[in-house]
């Protein structure tokens, strides 16, 4: 019985170490490796905006701060919208600042969604900002961005 207790304590110490690990990661996050947005991203954003202002509000982008593997990073997007025929989200665009193709996907909603919500898994080529831009039925554009630190980039095969 005593032995079991000691072993438990060791297990806890190991777990504590693994729980503390993300803290050191966060310290590295004021990220000197962050690159400026790619020209491809800026171009895609300009085409999407088509002269309209993109305002930072109404959209919530839930993206892991730390992506263990860039091959699949699951994100969630919520937009504050009544989702009525008169006022709803028409399309949610996901844009990447550093992927070889800036647009990751487009999700077209209707008032029948009830809620402006979508979740999917994306590829991230490297540590970067991801943008979720919501296009409303009145044509206005709203966005949120989030940074994800990518431990292992998409497209590298480690066997």
């Amino acid at each position: 019985m005593t032995l079991v207790r000691v072993d438990r304590r060791q297990a806890l110490a190991t777990l504590a170490a693994s729980l503390l690990a993300p803290v050191t990661v966060r310290a590295a996050e004021s990220d000197p490796s962050m690159k400026p947005p790619s020209a491809l991203y800026l171009q895609a954003r300009t085409v999407l905006a088509n002269g309209r202002e993109i305002r930072t509000a109404r959209v919530t982008l839930d993206l892991p701060r730390l992506a263990e593997n860039g091959n699949s990073v699951t994100l969630k997007i919520d937009v504050a919208s009544p989702m009525t025929a008169a006022d709803h989200v028409r399309t949610i665009h996901i844009l990447s600042e550093q992927n070889p193709i800036a647009t990751i996907g487009r999700f077209h909603l209707t008032p029948r969604a009830g809620r402006a919500f979508v979740s999917t898994s994306v590829r991230l080529a490297t540590t970067q900002n991801v943008h979720a831009i919501a296009e409303m039925s009145d044509g206005s554009l709203w966005e949120a961005q989030a940074e994800s630190v990518v431990l292992i980039a998409a497209c590298i095969d480690g066997g």
């Binding site: 079991v4 072993d7 438990r8 060791q10 297990a11 806890l12 777990l15 504590a16 729980l19 263990e68």
Partner: peptide, 28 residues
């Protein structure tokens, strides 16, 4: 931490070597 261990491995039998963790415990 004890709760975390207990919750994350409900099937962990008492005889399991306590220094071994399923790789799941190292996931985010």
């Amino acid at each position: 931490l004890a709760l975390a261990v207990w919750r994350s491995s409900p099937g962990l039998a008492e005889e399991a070597s306590p220094s071994l963790h399923p790789a799941t415990e190292y996931l985010s």
